[in-house]
Design a protein around this nucleic acid. Sequence first.
DNA 1: GTCTATACACCGATAGAC
DNA 2: GTCTATCGGTGTATAGAC
Lengths: 176, 176
Amino acid sequence: MRGYDGATLTNLASAAGLSKASLYHHFPGGKPEMAAALVRHAIADLQRQAFSRLSGHQSPGTRLLKFIDGFSAYTQTGESDCLLAVFNHHNTATEETATQQLLINQQFDDWHAALASVYEQAGLRPKKAKRAAHDLMAALYGALLIAKMHNQPVLFTDAIKRLKKDITRQFDLETV
Amino acid sequence: MRGYDGATLTNLASAAGLSKASLYHHFPGGKPEMAAALVRHAIADLQRQAFSRLSGHQSPGTRLLKFIDGFSAYTQTGESDCLLAVFNHHNTATEETATQQLLINQQFDDWHAALASVYEQAGLRPKKAKRAAHDLMAALYGALLIAKMHNQPVLFTDAIKRLKKDITRQFDLETV
DNA sequence: GTCTATACACCGATAGAC
DNA sequence: GTCTATCGGTGTATAGAC
């Protein structure tokens, strides 16, 4: 992960097994369009693996547990990074990626609303539900970052276990 | 924040009010040496503003509260980023910055030990103290990241308030 | 210590053959 | 759709005057 500037077309081309010129056939808009496609793909991926599990006919607590498992899977059990976090962390004051920044911000707002909605269905009042949603996201991304900082993926998996245990207790569920 | 690759010498020079050539007088090692100096500065800064407050003759809980305040100050109340987190997040598989990565990892290990020590002094057993130390760091960095993601700095300050309140309750302290 | 001028490599992007 | 060849620009880094 070397960010937008670190991702050179030569790298991208060799990673794709194509020449630089061929990339422009698939992405006439050049590098910004490639970044946009990557962001869209990451959003769809995180949506599919994690946030889609927030909806359904199961109990709110069960859905939260499935969501956490989905997030863990998305990050390859803490081994990989969240491209959206890296991208958003890493680009400000540049014209080319401003649109992607906004897209990511809006997506996280939507996701936060979906997460808060589940907490409301579990009986929390709107204010507390929003707070719980922020806290869960912060716990997930915080654990991911700390595991990276210490180069100990087990810190992430342990945090996931405890998060799930807390939710299981809070909503009086069986372990899944 | 555009990472190591995004920080061009032209940018650095204009930011420093010097020419590119002059930078090489102060940093003969070129860009990697400049990055190393920046990392060392950031480490010293975070040590001074936050982690130094973990030692002293006050109660463990009080020292934890001062540490949290120091971390908040270091991040400009959530407005700024932690350069160490960005740097570590953002460079892998590159030769030039590998040394800085290791330095940051070791520093965070030391800081974690210092934090865990305070929790031990507060009565926690080693295993739980280490866990609490990891959790606090994850909560701080998680809140910082989420605040950035939603472009709402208040999410960080709110999280700080609640973290301090929790510690105040846990250790039966007066609010500072 | 600071500057201008410059070397050389690589960047993103395009032209045009196949 | 893919390629080679190439453009103008910019990247890091150095030489040498002051």
